[in-house]
Write a protein that binds this DNA or RNA. Structure first.
Lengths: 105, 105
DNA sequence: ACAGTAGTTCGAAGAACTTGGAACTTCTCA
DNA sequence: TGAGAAGTTCCAAGTTCTTCGAACTACTGT
């Protein structure tokens, strides 16, 4: 049927706030998600992240929404799946060096 | 009377955890404290930070304790006053570049 | 259309956090 | 020794966060 493109909301790069990014990455589950994404080097399916952190899908969905709303990740819908990636370029432009620190930890 | 030196507990440099630092600095009041300290370039009295953020002393004492316990700040007692400073060296060694990012924000 | 799959949203419970007044501890100075 | 100053601790209240099952939406293949 008609492909009603469900737009997933993301903040613009300029709208990404440092305190929000810090707050989001200060939570162990989310920091692990960020590191898993960094290690993957690109997109990961939501399910792969869910598997990586070992929590129910509803909980992971919650954390992934927070990461997306803070501008840390980008979520792309493809069919029933969601492809998650780090917003490397935006984060590097906005807060140079931060992502590397988060990942090296 | 006898000078019973009340040791203020600080984590060792190696014990400073990234997630804890992020969580602490993700809170607006505390991030402002960190920035005020960075702008000062050295020690500030607790009262100066209290004045800077405009909150009751009990609330500031709470936030300053969290920052200290996370290893972000060092607190030195002198008489009835407390001198607060950023743990620049320890943070730079542990997470190079992070402090600069927090301050530039 | 149906069943199955992937993920989201809702609702509730419990945990953790933030705030601020009151009481308390320490130190200083006269 | 006593008053005052600077902070801390205690406690309660309100808020926000985290978790997770249940119900729901959206898409896919048959």
């Amino acid at each position: 049927m008609s492909n009603q493109v469900r737009e997933i909301p993301h903040p613009a790069a300029e709208e990404i706030e440092l305190a929000a990014v810090l707050r989001m990455c200060g939570e162990p589950v989310r920091l692990e998600m960020v590191r898993t994404l960094a290690a993957a080097g690109g997109e990961l399916k939501s399910g792969q992240l869910t598997g990586a952190v070992g929590l129910p899908t509803s909980t992971c969905s919650y954390h992934l929404r927070l990461l997306r709303e803070a501008g840390v990740t980008r979520t792309r819908a493809a069919g029933t799946e969601r492809y998650i990636s780090l917003r490397r370029d935006d984060l590097d432009r906005r807060f140079p060096g931060l992502l590397e620190i988060l990942v090296r930890g």
